[in-house]
């Protein structure tokens, strides 16, 4: 029950979807469509996994007044407030993200700046990392560095002002060598994904059951 049933479910859905790809007409096509819609529905629920442990952990911290409980309280307050304004938006405007919904206020003035700034921090880290790590230690690293510099200079007006070489070289790098490598890597990855999918369907790969 605990292992066999899931393996059978995976095998059946997997093989069926490969089959219905080649035989898209009735009844395969209709059944495939139904499975796809179900998949979309179930996929939504996976987003809820983790929310419970988040709430539990921080609620415990607040209840026991542990160190940093104030931050946990802020976290929970943010969560509850967002849910409340979301529901208000749904009831009042038909959707939480109607342009006048209070949910959009929270979105625009908290989620957007928080997410964007967190990510902007990376600018500093990547700059300092590149300063430290990307030194022309050997010919391979030099190649990487030269390529990066040419590409950057080729894409900003200053580069073209220095020499017409940069935009031309930039284009060539993007269209020929870098494209070739990206394609090689991606073909390898795609074939890897295919073999992994086969292993999953056939029940050889079972790590998702843990």
């Amino acid at each position: 029950m605990k292992r066999t049933v899931p393996l059978i479910i995976t095998f059946l859905t997997g093989t069926f979807l490969v089959m219905s790809f080649f035989v898209p007409h009735a009844p395969f096509g209709e059944l495939e469509q139904r499975l796809l819609v179900w998949y979309a529905i179930v996929a939504g629920f996976t987003m809820l996994l983790g929310v419970d442990s988040l709430i539990r952990a921080h609620a415990r911290k607040v209840a026991r007044v542990r160190e940093g409980w104030g931050f946990s309280l802020a976290l929970l307050a943010g969560l509850v407030a967002t849910v409340i304004v979301g529901v208000i938006g749904r009831v009042q405007f038909g959707s939480p993200f109607h342009i006048q919904s209070p949910f959009m206020f929270i979105y625009t003035y908290t989620i957007v700046p928080l997410q964007a700034t967190m990510f902007a921090l990376l600018a500093f880290f990547i700059a300092s990392a590149s300063y430290r790590a990307f030194r022309a230690r050997n010919w391979v690293a030099t190649l990487l560095l030269v390529s990066a510099v040419i590409v950057m200079l080729g894409r900003i007006p200053i580069g073209a002002a220095i020499s017409q070489f940069f935009p031309v070289a930039q284009e060539w790098i993007m269209d020929v060598p870098q494209l070739a490598a990206k394609r090689g890597i991606q073909i390898g990855a795609a074939l890897g994904a295919v073999s992994m999918s086969l292993r999953i369907i056939l029940g050889i790969e079972r790590s998702y059951l843990s």
Partner: peptide, 12 residues
């Protein structure tokens, strides 16, 4: 706040 608001967002 970011974590809390994001979690609320997913629930909605």
């Amino acid at each position: 706040l970011y974590v809390g608001v994001s979690a609320g967002y997913w629930l909605i």
